[in-house]
Design a protein around this nucleic acid. Sequence first.
DNA 1: TTGTATGCGTTATCAT
DNA 2: ATGATAACGCATACAA
Lengths: 347, 347
Amino acid sequence: MAKRVTALDVAKTAGVSRTTVSFVLNNVEGMRISDETRKRVLKVASELNYYPDATAQRMAKGKTSIIGFVLRQEPDKAYADLFLPEVMRGISDIANEKGYHVLFTPIPPDENNKGFHKLIHERQADGLIISGPLAEDDELVQLYEDGAPVVLMGKLANASIPHVDVDNIESAKMAVSHLIKLGHKQIAMVTNASRKYTSCRDRLEGYKAALEEANIPFNEKYVVIGDRTPESGHHAMQSMLYLSPRPTALFIASDTVALGCMNALYQNGIRVPEDVAIVGFDDIPLSKFIAPPLSTIHLPAYGLGWGAANLLVQWLEEKQIPTHEVILETELIVRESCGAFMKGNIE
Amino acid sequence: MAKRVTALDVAKTAGVSRTTVSFVLNNVEGMRISDETRKRVLKVASELNYYPDATAQRMAKGKTSIIGFVLRQEPDKAYADLFLPEVMRGISDIANEKGYHVLFTPIPPDENNKGFHKLIHERQADGLIISGPLAEDDELVQLYEDGAPVVLMGKLANASIPHVDVDNIESAKMAVSHLIKLGHKQIAMVTNASRKYTSCRDRLEGYKAALEEANIPFNEKYVVIGDRTPESGHHAMQSMLYLSPRPTALFIASDTVALGCMNALYQNGIRVPEDVAIVGFDDIPLSKFIAPPLSTIHLPAYGLGWGAANLLVQWLEEKQIPTHEVILETELIVRESCGAFMKGNIE
DNA sequence: TTGTATGCGTTATCAT
DNA sequence: ATGATAACGCATACAA
């Protein structure tokens, strides 16, 4: 590879000092530089194909202009979740706009090395977006309390770390209430993730709240743990087939998991929505394309990524902790899997 | 945030010089350092919570230890493709193992700024993995010829840039031949992407080759362009419904696109595989979970990411261009959508 | 075995 | 308006 062109080379060729080059290229205010020199410097820089060295810039400026996106899940699960790509798109868009780069880093929850600390203390990134925090995560809280710019997607129970989230409780309740309104009483739930994640706990709580409101007794046997993948949904469903009475409706707190559930039903000749009604959660891009199209709770995936990145950048630029909580709206999307459009039902 | 702890702080507290600290922490060979000092330095470093500053390290070492992962697609399409996450997992795994970080950067194909050059010349990364190259991409070729470490996922027509890929022609042929073997003669194709991408051209070529081998005339009307998203598949399918004679089988060169096609069929009451047989391409993780489970060509998504990252790291470490071509195996996965298991068909 | 001195390519502060 | 120079934190060749 050709030798690097430095600012000094530009300065020499243009017959000015390094400083002047820096001023021109960075458009420093107040420094009135003759139009002629300015033009000459710009011309030379372009001719020499000069690009400032990012590392040196970081060194001098004391900031990396990198935001880290941390996935707090086992890699196989992190990547199976079809929710992820849209989130990344949201993050990328803001980063792009504000001149940041995105470092992508999966850190499994069981890793005992100090993954977060390392990222921040080594200055790999100026700040972190943490996706899917555990309900308890001391290391994370510690990091925040040390003053590190950390923003969450999802929330942490007992800490006021800035975060972007949806109202998981209310959204889950909305889904289940819809099923109740359609006349169902035996409503089971498959969770989106293991119980150690906040999002799982909250959606479960919403499920319970809806039942309670309708005076339907809660039955522990009607709750099965799904864990982010279609495979886990398939498993969950299998175990539910032998329940008696068999549920007439399912609230599945993740569309990705729901795919696996529906597959298990398909294999067993159980029809959706005729034999069992389903409402999912997330509204992943392909929910509308599967057969039958999935009724679900729409989550603003792009918005979550966008919002988290925005919060973080704000923090970094203004050097003070931004709004602590941003809650985005969700929406019930009625398609076919819940049976609302079947003959006999209104609408 | 607490003031940074530098190597100098560690040296002072331990009562040694900066150099010694550096030697101990980097385990430099040949420098016999007394066990006692070594231990003391290590202890102090740990007590002071010292982490070397990555930026400074980069500066001194002249390398960033970052590999860039570039998506050469319109963002909305890049993220819609369900093939992506597994690729990223493959890249992350290698990067993790070899001590690299991954910079994630979508660069739309129509962008006229020199996206690649910038990344390399600014030294944002030591090398780049480019996903989904266009058939012609002068800028990319230029970069490679300048000696930049660039590895492709997919291949470029007229350049010998190192790449990891599958045999798209042969794989597509395998898919179509399977449909022919099942007795189909009216076989249409929906492409995976627009014609400017190499992968699209090659899969189309494989489709033609299979037809030719079976003496089935090629019909231009039977080829419709899909473009990475379910939406595009839905569109493509709509336009195909009015074809006469209507195809009895479909080769869809992307499972993601196939989802949209199947949805259009579903809406029109056309059954798969009874009315139309389908073979997809990619074997995205959820292909086995949709209804009916999708027969498809399995692509080693994880392996492609892993392989590309591996090639790049090799290049960076050994400072010479690695093997120019790595071709991974594909496999026909027979599920239900192709109708091979229907009554009347053997197997 | 350990310490000294220099370079990496910028930015930014201070003179001129 | 422009130029000299320090500072950023680390690695390393060289000296002791």
